[in-house]
Simulated scan of single mutants.
Amino acid sequence: MKQILITGSFGFLGSRLVLYYLKAGWKVRLFDLPNHALKEQLLTEFGQAGSYELFESDICDYDSVLSAVRGCQEVIHGAALLNSVAAYDHFHRINVQGTKTICDACVAEGVPHFTLISTSDVFGIPQQHQLLHEESPYRSWNEPYADTKILAANYVKALRAKGQLNASIVYPGWIYGEGDRQFFPAVMDMVRDGIVFTWHKSRASDIYFVHIDDLILGIDRVLHTSESSNRDYLLLDPTSGITPLTLYGIIADYLDIQIKHIHVPYPIMMLVALVTQSLARIGILSKPVLSSTDVKAFGNAFQFCTDRAANELDWMPSIPTREGILRALNWQTQQPSANPAS
């Protein structure tokens, strides 16, 4: 029976990975911060699926991380900071120093295989008509999340190049589905307000979704495919056909709400993001209207190629995006905290 460690175990992806491997009969170790808001609820779910070991500590605490990786055959590192208003130093500590800490512990303990959960954002905003794939160079967004994820991935690649760490890197697209407590709730709140915004520069681009269940199957293929060692994989739907406005329309139809669409010039929306992020950082606003990362992500046209995952992992998205969106909406509206349509 294999022993696996999953960091960020109480997050969206991490918690679903824990359940997946518990149900598959693996010995699962959890690693996350103490006092997580969802801890008790998730531990109850985990306990119903199997037995686990819980390690509660800071991902930069080397001794704690070393204890957690000891004896593991697989380590999936999903812990990361996504908060749009945190200072760069905080992003760097969690996303870069945290990754270095767990990688160094895996090297010290001789862990057979390490998987870094990165992001498709590391490839940057493409030039016109550029097709992004696993060998595309990393390019800065001048945003703390994407740029620290680049540094983290580069550290993994450096250890890999030296032969010190057998590591795979996974680049998901926009993760969505049942259990999402960030992306879909935010979009649904916008739709409930009755006014939706777009700000693309030249043309509306598809959102490069990956349903949580498809992503987990892709990660599992990485763990079970010997050829995936020291290889990287984009895991997303390159042909979702869902633009932001299409997504708003699906949600509005589901909630039976009439919406008004306003297209805002890209520079103006970026200014709104930068100003409200700054106000949120100093406490004047509880949260920004949206992040500058979101403005860039939904305002630029991206194209991705997932041929490597199809050819080497026999992986392609199996859940049609519209079906996945409806499943996600069903889950959201069944939650006790779901806001009624106003």
Rank of each mutant, 00 (worst) to 15 (best):
T243V: 13
I219D: 12
S136F: 00
L30N: 12
N166M: 09
V275L: 12
G179M: 00
G124H: 02
R308L: 06
K23Q: 14
V191P: 07
I262E: 01
I268H: 10
L82W: 08
S226M: 04
S240K: 01
Q182I: 09
I150T: 06
S202E: 12
G249S: 11
L159Q: 04
S291N: 03
K100H: 14
V264A: 00
S140T: 06
L66W: 05
G78R: 07
C60Q: 14
E45F: 07
V75Q: 02
Q130W: 03
V69M: 01
I59C: 10
W26Y: 15
L326H: 15
L255I: 05
K39S: 15
Q334C: 12
Y155T: 03
I216G: 07
K287R: 15
P238R: 04
H200D: 12
I212L: 10
I175L: 08
L274I: 11
T321C: 14
D189N: 13
P340E: 08
F46H: 12
E227Q: 14
F298R: 06
F10G: 01
V196F: 04
A79V: 02
D253C: 05
N142H: 15
H263C: 06
I125K: 02
M190T: 15
H36V: 12
P137T: 05
M188P: 03
L279E: 01
S342F: 09
L247M: 13
A204T: 08
A310N: 08
Y62A: 14
R203L: 13
I242E: 01
Y138M: 10
A309F: 05
G25C: 08
G124E: 04
L81H: 08
H200I: 09
P320T: 05
Q128A: 09
S318H: 11
I259L: 07
L151P: 03
D214P: 07
Y88E: 13
D89A: 15
P172W: 00
V65R: 01
Y254P: 07
L81W: 03
L5G: 02
V156G: 08
D213F: 07
L235K: 00
G71F: 07
Q130T: 11
F209V: 03
D58S: 12
W141F: 07
M316R: 12
F197M: 13
K260G: 07
L151A: 15
E134Q: 00
K39F: 08
S318N: 10
Y266I: 09
N142E: 14
I219C: 02
L17S: 04
L326P: 01
L255H: 06
L236T: 06
I282W: 13
S118K: 11
E56M: 13
G8Y: 08
S120Y: 03
I251S: 11
M1Q: 12
T246L: 04
S64W: 00
R160Y: 02
R327M: 14
P267L: 13
C60M: 09
H200L: 03
D58M: 08
S168K: 04
N166F: 05
V187S: 02
A338K: 12
Q332W: 12
H77Q: 10
S118Y: 02
W315A: 01
I259G: 05
F209Y: 08
L165M: 01
R327C: 06
G194S: 04
A79S: 06
R327A: 12
